[in-house]
Simulated scan of single mutants.
Amino acid sequence: MKAHHRFALALAGALLLTNLPAHAASLAERYDALRAEQPKLQLRDAARTLNVSEANLLAVGIGKTVTRLQEGENVPREIMRRALDLGTVMALTRNDNGVLERTGVATRLKPQEEIVGLDADKEKEREARLRNIAGGYLGGEIDLRFTFKNWKYAFAVVQPGKDGVLTRSLQFFDTHGNAAHKIYVKSEAGVPVFDKLVAEFRNPVQGAELKVAPASARAAEKPDSAVDIKEFQLAWNELTDVHQFNRLLSEFGVSREQAMRLAPASAVQRVAPLAVRQLLEESARQKLDIMAFLGNESTIQIFSGKVNKVQAAGGWFNVLDPEFNLHLRDQAFNSGYVIKRAGVTSVEFFDQNGELVVSFFGVRERNKPQPQSWVDMTAALPKPGNAVRQASR
Rank of each mutant, 00 (worst) to 15 (best):
N308P: 11
P214N: 00
E78W: 09
I302V: 15
V193W: 03
Q372D: 14
V75Q: 01
E281G: 10
G139I: 01
G343Y: 09
K340D: 15
E188L: 13
F349L: 05
Q171C: 06
N308D: 14
E209P: 07
Q278H: 09
R81N: 13
N237Y: 03
D163A: 13
N95S: 09
L58Q: 12
G87A: 06
E127D: 10
A265H: 07
M291N: 08
E78S: 10
K162R: 12
F317A: 05
A208C: 08
L166E: 13
E29S: 12
K309C: 03
I229H: 06
A47N: 06
F245S: 02
E114Q: 13
Q42R: 15
N353I: 02
P76Y: 03
Q370S: 07
K309Q: 10
A332S: 14
V254L: 05
F324T: 12
P21K: 10
E365W: 03
L43H: 04
V99G: 00
Q159I: 01
W374P: 15
G136K: 01
R389V: 07
W236M: 01
R202W: 02
T93Q: 01
G295H: 05
A24I: 00
P192K: 15
F324I: 08
G140C: 09
I183Y: 00
L86F: 11
N132P: 00
A379T: 05
V227Q: 06
T240E: 15
E78K: 14
L166W: 04
E188I: 10
S255T: 12
S216F: 04
E355H: 10
A156H: 04
Q70W: 00
R77M: 09
L41C: 04
L16P: 05
E282I: 11
A220V: 11
